[in-house]
Structure formats: C-alpha cells, structure tokens
Design a protein around this nucleic acid. Structure first.
Length: 153
DNA sequence: GCCAACGTTGGC
DNA sequence: GCCAACGTTGGC
C-alpha cells in the first residue's frame, strides 16, 4: 500500500466538498502535470492512502485523509471543449490525462499547516518540503503519513 | 497582488 | 537537443 499527498484549492474543492459528495467520492479530474499524471496512471492503486492538502488559501496544509477507490481512468474532461480542463492535444485515441476516484475517510481534528510541516524535523525529507512545492500529486512515506495524522489528532 | 520556482513550448 | 520566452503554481 502506498501513501500520497494530493492538493486542492479549497475554493474549488475542499475536504468538506469531498465529504459531502455522493458516496463521499469524487473523480479527481484536472491533473495537467506530467509527473503527477505518471503517478496517477502508473503507480496509484485501489486502497492507497491520501493526505488531502489545501493549497492557495489562507492557511495551506493537510486537512484530512482519503483513499483511492478506483483504477486509473481516462480524464474525459480533457476532451470537452467547454471544460476548464480541456486539452486539445488529448483525445480518446491518444489520451494524455488520467484520473482516479478518491473517497473521504476523515477530517483531521486540527489541520496541519505547511508552516508546521516545514519546521518539523521528522518531515524534512517530504517531497512537499524539498522539491514538490508545485507538484499536485506526490508520494509520501508511511512514516510521514503516520506522523502527520498524529499531528492532526 | 507579487514574485520565485519550476514546467512547457517552440525556434533554431 | 539547447535554451529563451512564456505560462502556471502557490506561498506570502
């Protein structure tokens, strides 16, 4: 089982939006970065654990836990001209972008802000802290995952 | 709103 | 294949 961190802008989709979705599940559409796409397409498996991260907001940080509940699927929003995620270079014969479904598990009792992640000696090797500042889907170690969840209790 | 960091594009 | 120009992300 693997562990991931996924970012979302809460003004767009927040942890509460995920919790309030049908079956507490959403298709994670709109990934338009190749490195993130490769993780989604090639490495993510059903049952993997996800730290849900709020970015581009007042207090960025980890706010909850989710899990992966589908195999990778084509991201059909790339084919829809009216979609904000439309990509004319992707088409069903030559798909470029992929998605998975994720399901709400729980909201942390207290969110763990980026400032805390950055200052915690146990988390200095996190992709988020080192080089992944702009990567919207990134791997997390089991130790990092457990540690962050503990901080949020 | 600014801007640093980084990714992508495209000319050569 | 290099690299300049440009676009995007995301913290502050």
């Amino acid at each position: 089982m693997k562990y991931w961190l996924m970012k979302s802008e809460p003004d767009d989709i927040s942890i509460d939006d995920l919790r309030d979705s049908p079956n507490k599940t959403m298709s994670w559409q709109g990934i338009r970065n190749y490195q993130a796409r490769n993780f989604i397409r090639d490495e993510i498996k059903v049952g993997d654990y996800v730290l849900f991260y709020h970015s581009s907001c007042k207090v960025p940080g980890v706010v909850g836990i989710a899990s992966v509940v589908s195999q990778p699927q084509l991201d059909a929003s790339a084919f829809e001209p009216q979609s904000r995620y439309f990509d004319p270079k992707s088409n069903p014969d030559k798909p470029r972008w992929w998605q998975v479904d994720i399901q709400f598990t729980e909201k942390l009792n207290q969110s763990v802000p980026l400032s805390q992640l950055k200052s915690d000696p146990a988390l200095q090797d996190m992709v988020l802290v080192t080089k992944g500042a702009r990567l919207s889907v990134q791997p997390v170690t089991a130790e990092e995952f457990t540690h962050i969840v503990m901080l949020g209790k």
